[in-house]
Write a protein that binds this DNA or RNA. Structure first.
Length: 565
DNA sequence: GCCGTTTTCGGCCCGACTGTTTTCAGTCG
């Protein structure tokens, strides 16, 4: 009998860290920035692989088959696996100062920035850096951006945007089904509720051999740490740092287990408080193959996963008065898309064809306004030409109407970036902030309120400017802005770009409660990005929005009537 | 160093504004 191969010594993440460290040192050496980027990207590829890279190397698999790994990096990986180290990395480390070498132990830290902190705060070690981070001195003396950089690089960040979680979930799902012999696997928890930031991944599975599944999962990504395990539940730390919980359920109790694994703590507590005990269902002899059967037994109508946050959904379900949440098929058009006129990658005609392909009735072309130079903002005289061009195009094409719009910059003083006589020729506007994020809360709020006073202001684009896990967004008094929008007949956007999702579900709910309708827009810069709509729909559903509360679920004549001021 | 429906070289956004780290790097889409 053949011997079992020895367990891999290196996890994929450990190999990826070596490549990232190399990239980091190369960047301090003023090496070709594209080469630096190549190492970083290859590291990302490896970090996301379910298969053990060490195994692949030992089995002589051609690593260049994987995207972003070519001959050079493939050889570097082989060297790391077979010799345990990377000569190029070691030699670079020996050439730099001990301080930089110490910084290099943290691949995500930018040495240049750290050295600046060292100089400013008169410190020289990671230890001291951590301490200054804790006391808040870095934020005070070097700004919040710097604080954020060090924080994310030093303290291992395990949460990720929903968009990234999608990749992890599908990789784990495939691994469970194809490598672990699981007959059924469904992602649960925050991911299933479509929460925009995912701290950990969880799955419900059906299997005849749970211990075998555990054993296989311990090899995920080369090596995964088993944190805890029981008869039907196991918790892992994947080598990438993500926590993974796997729970097994029998077919006849699947519905009950799915509710228990999906609901937020608050949702489950609300169920229990209302005397609707899931545990009784789990123990009973009755079969609950799906969630509807289980909810029915609890005296509730089916509650969509996105609503299971413990707000009012249990009460509403008991009265059968849950909202009918907006669905992809309710969307009748797109109101925020770019074209080659500014920084988009497809022409107006191509975008229109893409939107028609999606079954849309209309497409609003909202290119950037003149001030936003980096995005090739449309000069005022070219806007006039674009308006005429779209008029002609609408006569020529069929099956879709192109709406004349613009993503108009809200300037620092709250004025709009085009003169009124040009704005009045547009069907509507999306008005956004793209500069001066650092204004104080009052000033920033006043800026937006003043912009809303312009009668050609229609929709506030990406209202808080946040980028998930990257940038907090500017500070505004949301209640005042919502109230002003209601008074002036303005609207908000849920920007579906997966690193924005702005408005948040919470703010979208506030807006809805105030009676202010919301556009679910993609901010698409290409035909493909029109599909971002699904991320925005997820958030709208979390906000409890029904189709009737979404601007672009309306037919154009109705929409036109509503947005007219 | 990677990559190719412009395929073995020459690309891989980019350009003005902001403001403190202070005269250049970070930032905005």
């Amino acid at each position: 009998m053949k011997d079992q191969p020895a367990p891999p010594l290196l996890s994929n993440a450990e190999i990826a860290d070596r490549l990232t460290s190399l990239a980091q040192l190369l960047s301090t050496q003023k090496e070709n920035p594209f080469k630096v980027k190549a190492y970083r990207r290859a590291a990302e590829t490896i970090r996301a692989l379910p298969d053990s890279v060490e195994d692949l190397v030992r089995r002589d698999v051609d690593l260049t088959e994987y995207s972003r790994i070519g001959k050079g990096i493939s050889n570097a990986i082989r060297e790391i696996v077979l010799s345990g180290s990377l000569r190029k990395l070691e030699s670079l480390r020996s050439q730099v100062t001990p301080e930089v070498a110490a910084i290099n132990e943290y691949p995500r830290l930018d040495p240049k920035r750290v050295l600046r902190i060292y100089k400013k705060l008169k410190i020289s070690s990671i230890e001291a850096l951590k301490e200054k981070l804790e006391t808040g001195e870095i934020a005070r003396t070097l700004g919040v951006r710097m604080d954020q950089h060090v924080r994310q690089a030093l303290i291992e960040r395990r949460e990720m945007p929903l968009y990234d979680a999608e990749d992890v979930v599908s990789a784990v799902e495939e691994y469970l089904l194809n490598r672990c012999g699981v007959s059924r696997a469904e992602a649960t928890g925050d991911y299933r509720r479509r929460v925009e930031i995912i701290p950990e991944i969880s799955f419900l599975i059906e299997t005849g051999d749970f211990p075998a599944v555990i054993a296989k999962l311990e090899r995920y990504g080369g090596k995964s740490e088993l944190l805890d395990s029981g008869d039907s539940r196991a918790i892992f730390r994947l080598s990438s740092g993500t926590k993974l919980t796997v729970e097994a359920a029998r077919k006849e109790k699947w519905g009950v287990a799915l509710i228990a694994c999906t609901g937020s703590e608050n949702h489950l507590r609300k169920l229990a408080d209302a005397g609707r005990n899931l545990k009784d269902l789990a123990k009973s002899k009755q079969s609950f193959p799906d969630e509807t059967a289980a909810y029915t037994k609890l005296g509730l109508s089916f509650i969509e996963p996105e609503l299971r946050e413990g707000r009012d959904e249990v009460e509403l379900a008991a009265r059968s008065s849950l909202p009918v949440l907006v669905r992809a098929t309710d969307i009748r058009g797109e109101l925020h898309a770019h074209s080659t006129s500014s920084d988009g990658s497809h022409t107006i005609e191509q975008m229109a064809a893409g939107a028609r392909e999606k079954g849309y009735e209309y497409l609003g072309i909202s290119d950037h306004s003149q001030s936003l130079k980096i995005a090739r903002g449309v000069p005022v005289k070219d806007l006039w030409l674009q308006i005429r061009f779209i008029d002609k195009l609408n006569q020529k094409i069929s099956g879709i109407r192109i709406l004349k719009s613009a993503e108009v910059d809200i300037l620092a003083d709250g004025s709009l970036d085009y003169p009124d006589e040009r704005l009045r020729e547009l069907d509507y506007t999306v008005c956004s902030i793209h500069s001066r994020f650092a204004l104080g809360k009052t000033e920033q709020t006043e800026r937006i309120l003043r912009a809303m006073d312009n009668r050609y202001f229609t929709i506030l684009g990406h209202p808080t400017g946040r980028l998930l896990l990257k940038r907090p967004g500017y500070e505004i008094d949301m209640q005042r802005v919502i109230e002003h929008a209601r008074k002036n007949g303005c609207f908000f956007e849920i920007n579906s770009s997966p690193d924005r999702l702005d408005l948040s579900a919470e703010n979208a709910r506030l807006s809805r409660d105030a009676g202010v309708k919301i556009a679910i827009s993609t901010d698409a810069h290409s035909i493909r990005e029109l599909d971002y709509i699904n991320w925005g729909i997820d958030q709208a559903r979390r906000a409890g929005l029904a189709g009737g509360e979404v601007l672009n679920c309306l037919a154009w004549p109705e929409l036109q009537r509503i947005i007219k001021r």
